[in-house]
């Protein structure tokens, strides 16, 4: 479903990550790597938020640069450590992103209930704890009708109940045909999620490891 060709990302001339050819089949996939290995950079590139060398295709149909709008309608991303303007509320952000991602009727209500943010979602982000902020970012990641959702460290800073809710949300969306790319230092094998493959970022490239 996702094809990455001749990918390279460098900062100030220093290569962070190089992926000559990578094919990702539909499913739930886990990407690991030490701090600073380039996981978030890779996710952001796939999400179209960070320019890079090479090509990134979705279903051999939409390329991240060539088909910017239809590609982004189908690929979502939730930040590991989101930073939003302190005066905006989750309500403001979700309404704007939901509209842009063409969120179907009732989806926002369902997501804010599943991730339990209704109580505070009209308060400014500046009053949120890191867990509340993370839940907001996760809601944004699920909006619309994506084919691929990338969740960067989805299990950090949220409580056990929220972890279970996120895992069940991933399983539900997966049943509907949505694929996932997850990055986490936590071991997903300890959760109820059935992983299809696992990758490790090491020596500035991506290698497959046993799931």
């Amino acid at each position: 479903m996702l094809q990455v060709k001749n990918y390279r990302k460098a900062y100030h001339g220093r290569t962070i990550l190089q992926v000559p050819d990578w094919q990702l089949s539909p499913g739930i996939h886990w990407i690991r790597g030490s701090n600073g290995s380039g996981k978030s950079t890779f996710f952001r590139s796939i999400a179209g938020m960070l320019p890079c060398e090479g090509e990134i295709w979705l279903n051999n149909q939409y390329e991240v640069s060539l088909h910017a709008v239809p590609y982004r309608l189908r690929v979502n991303y939730a930040e590991a450590e989101p930073l939003y303007p302190e005066y905006l509320s989750a309500f403001d952000l979700i309404s704007f992103v939901g509209k842009a991602k063409q969120s179907p009727a009732g989806q926002v209500d369902s997501l804010i209930d599943t991730l339990e943010i209704r109580e505070f979602w009209k308060q400014p982000v500046g009053t949120y704890s890191s867990g509340m902020l993370k839940k907001t970012s996760l809601v944004l990641g699920f909006l619309g009708q994506p084919e691929l959702i990338m969740l960067d460290e989805p299990l950090i800073t949220i409580d056990d109940r929220a972890v279970a809710n996120v895992c069940s949300l991933i399983a539900t969306y997966h049943q509907r045909g949505v694929s996932f790319l997850l990055s986490s230092h936590q071991d997903f094998r300890l959760t109820a999620l059935a992983l299809d493959s696992s990758y490790l970022i090491q020596n500035h490239t991506l290698v497959e490891t046993p799931a």
Partner: peptide, 11 residues
Amino acid sequence: EYLLFLRNLPL
């Protein structure tokens, strides 16, 4: 800095 998600939106 604050609206990184903008580049992921299909606008």
